[in-house]
Each structure stands twice: as structure tokens, then as C-alpha cells.
Design a protein around this nucleic acid. Sequence first.
DNA 1: ACGAATTAATCAGTGCACTGAGTATTTCTC
DNA 2: GAGAAATACTCAGTGCACTGATTAATTCGT
Lengths: 145, 145
Amino acid sequence: MAAVDLSTHPGHLARRLQQAHSLLWGAMVSEETTSPQFAVLNALVEKPDIDQRTLSEHVHLDRSTIADVVARLVRRGLVERVRDPKDGRRNVLKLSEEGTRHHRKLVTRTARMNRVFLAPLEESEQETLLRLIARVADAAEELRG
Amino acid sequence: MAAVDLSTHPGHLARRLQQAHSLLWGAMVSEETTSPQFAVLNALVEKPDIDQRTLSEHVHLDRSTIADVVARLVRRGLVERVRDPKDGRRNVLKLSEEGTRHHRKLVTRTARMNRVFLAPLEESEQETLLRLIARVADAAEELRG
DNA sequence: ACGAATTAATCAGTGCACTGAGTATTTCTC
DNA sequence: GAGAAATACTCAGTGCACTGATTAATTCGT
């Protein structure tokens, strides 16, 4: 059996896309704060005082990964994590002052970066790309939600 | 500054897409052999006796990552790695008998899986998605080749 | 032919991401 | 109200992926 053309394999392309993205992120947005970390900060701007489980649903990361990512943000003083006195199983999360400042700074940079990243496409193609990826990802997450 | 809509961020979507893919891969293709490992096997079917550097260009993985992935495949007896007697810096790689058999088996499964993964899209949309991702990834890899 | 530059691989370190097992706490059921 | 079930988190283990530093081998320039 002959070799396969990997450029027709969505998984391979997805990996390359993500890789390329995280490289550009490091150059244009931040070397310390990664894209998943930004996703967490962003979710906490929108919904403060949520627990890790809710957070993990929001950013589509699993419970263990969230714990790691949050731990790093706590270590850097960007996020505060306290046991919920009402329910001793939950960690309640919120941004610190500095976390809020940091998020604000990154928002403008990510916008700039996204423009550069998608620059090879026409505006309509950019929208198509985002829409198609979202549909496939949504459907696949649906399969084993 | 308000929170951002992550569904307009290509990096976030790319991560979700890749995640969803690797989950489905585990269910439909193989639990032991990951998608990057398959990419390596596939490259060695196409080009036997290449070194790790050439391989890393082919599958778009960096030199360190390739070393890890290849080491796992060697450990499982799917790939053979020997020092090039002509050039003592290189490791020459090739598939073992079993590696070849294993690749053959996975080729049919990946085809089936790709159909399921992309099923939520029309055929023309599937092609569009692959083409657009490839263009963005190519361009970004170009930036820092 | 000899030292310098280049090239290939490895190693240490960090971070993302998952599974499966284990712990603690709350809630549900009788 | 006590035991069972469910929930939230943590921990250990594995794999992918990168950078920067190191080591070893070849090639290039003079």
C-alpha cells in the first residue's frame, strides 16, 4: 500500500495550523502567557467566580489540563484561587488586579496577531475558515461530549 | 476592556479542532499509534532511508519532537534506526516489516475516520476547509521557516 | 592539512493535553 | 440520619511540541 497525502488529512493540517499559530503567538503576543492561558484569563473576565469544571467547559480544556494551566497563572499572581466556603469541593477563581491588566494588554495584541495570521486569505475566506473549523469541532465534541 | 469572543480566534479553534481530532483518532484508528506517529510511518513509506532532519521537514515537526516520536516507534519495533556509516552524524530510518504492515492497516482506518470527522460539511466545503488551512499554515511556516 | 564553520542528533527544561485512579465533599435515597 | 451516588479536584503516567545548550561528525577555507 502506497503512502498517503497528509495534506488531505484534517488532523495533520490542524496540528500544523496550531503549531504555526503558537509560534507566531510567541513572537507577537507574549512569550510567557500562552494562548490557552489567555483563553482562561478571558473566560474569567467574562465569568468571574466560576469553578474549574465550569471553566473547563468554557474553554474546551479537560479538568486536569485546566488545573495545570490555572496553577501556573496562580503562581504568577494573575489568578486567585480559593476554596468555596459554600461547597468545599469547588475552587472559585477570579482575576487579580494584575491579571485584569494583563488580559487588557493581550487583547489588543491578539487582535493584531489574528490579522497577520489570517492575512493570506481574503476577508470572506477568513470568515469561511473560522466557520468551517467551528462546525467540525462542534460536531466532533458532540460525539463524545 | 471586555472579554473577547474566542470563536473568532483561529488559534483557539485550531486547538479545539486538533483536540477533537485526536480523541476521534483514539476511538477509530488506534489507541497506541498516534496521529504524529502515523505521519512518521507514512513519510518512511514514501521515502525510506532518510535521516531525522529530512523527516522533520516532511512532517513539519521539529528536530527534538521527531527524536521522541521515532524513539517510541523504535521501541515498539516499527522503525529501525541505524547510524549512517557514510556520515556519522545521521540516523538512517526505515520501516520494519511490522511497521509496514502496521502502516497498511492504519491507512484504511484513517480514510474512514477522515470521512466521519468531516461528515458535518458538504463535500465542497471539506475541500475548501483543507485548502484554506493549508494556505494559512504554509504562509505562517514561511514567516519563520 | 588544520582550524573554523556547519550540520545532525541529543539532553534538559517547560508547557499543553489526555486517561485512569484516588481523595474529599456534597447530595440523594431510603 | 446513615449509607450510596455523584461531584470537584488532585495526582501519576504518557505523549506531543518547543527552545536553548551540548556533543559529535563533516565540510569548508585558506
